[in-house]
Design a protein around this nucleic acid. Structure first.
Length: 276
DNA sequence: ACGAGGTCCTGCGAGC
DNA sequence: TGCTCGCAGGACCTCG
């Protein structure tokens, strides 16, 4: 579910409630979302740890701990993370709650995930470095240039939409913003990545940056499950140009927006009139 | 090395 | 009303 703008919104919302706080206890209710650790080890490792920072990398929420380790949460399709105003009892919990972190402030941080396609890791510094290095450049980082982006697309035969959703090419772009960015840049999502010219790559690079930045301003896109770190829906869904707008007129040329599932089995919305 | 395809999960709305 | 089917903001793994 959450793409870069949604995870960024969550990180900004929960940071004031988590940074500097100590985790009194951790509880895991569904251990299948834990990777490379067990429920017992996770709960034992976190009790008494202080959270020193809250960040985001690609679509990962990163909680830095005072022992150098990091809790890394990939929310998948339906994960959400928020800090409640008051502690909840275990038997009063939401049926989809996966992890509770009881804080010394009396508040409760909760990870909730209906489909449980999300992943939660507890990484050592070395494990985090390896994970971090496996992810591509951050699209909002000024060091990420159009030339660098174009170089990653050259020689690649896969479809451009799939290429920009590849986290090694550019971090944090998912299905919604891939559709939106390709519309902004006027590029057909089924084009081969290697056939995108330098000028088109520059336009797409800018479009990715702009749509993500605008969505962060709008606190992300909510269709069903996504909630901000304060538990509210985002506001960007009303500003999408193509996603979920099949049959409606293109905002640029008036043709009807089309939808196909032929790209990696994900829904791709595009305008047949002005995307080539 | 790259890319296609299957797998992990649950819920919901459309259609019969 | 009740069922089945397809689809849903993602990413990992295996195979060719």
């Amino acid at each position: 579910m959450p793409e870069l703008p949604e995870v960024e919104t969550i990180a900004r919302d929960v940071r004031p409630h988590l940074a500097g706080r100590t985790i009194r206890s951790a509880r895991v209710f569904k251990s299948d979302i834990l990777k490379k650790t067990s429920k017992a080890r996770f709960e034992r490792s976190l009790a008494g740890r202080r959270v020193t920072g809250v960040g985001r990398r690609a679509k990962n929420l990163v909680l830095e701990l005072d022992d150098g380790r990091r809790i890394v949460i990939q929310p998948g399709m339906t994960g959400s993370f928020q800090v409640d105003g008051r502690r909840r009892t275990a038997d009063g919990r939401d049926p989809y709650d996966v992890i509770h972190l009881e804080l010394d402030s009396g508040r409760m941080a909760r990870y909730r995930d209906v489909r449980r396609l999300g992943r939660v890791y507890l990484f050592t510094p070395a494990q985090w470095d390896k994970h971090d290095r496996s992810i591509g450049p951050e699209p909002l980082d000024p060091d990420f240039t159009a030339g660098q982006f174009h170089a990653l697309l050259k020689n690649r035969k896969l479809m451009i939409k799939k290429a920009i959703m590849d986290q090694r090419v550019v971090a944090g772009v998912g299905n919604i913003y891939a559709n939106e960015a390709l519309w902004i840049a006027g590029i057909d999502p089924s084009r081969e990545a290697r056939k995108v010219t330098a000028a088109e790559a520059a336009a797409l690079h800018q479009a990715i940056h702009d749509v993500l930045a605008r969505s962060i301003e709008g606190r992300g896109t909510t269709f069903r499950d996504y909630r901000t770190g304060t538990g509210e829906p985002g506001n960007y869904q009303g500003r999408l140009a193509v996603y979920d707008r099949a049959g409606q007129p293109c905002l640029r040329c008036g043709r009807r927006i089309a939808v196909t599932h032929a790209i990696d089995g994900r829904s791709s919305y595009f305008c047949p009139g002005c995307q080539h």
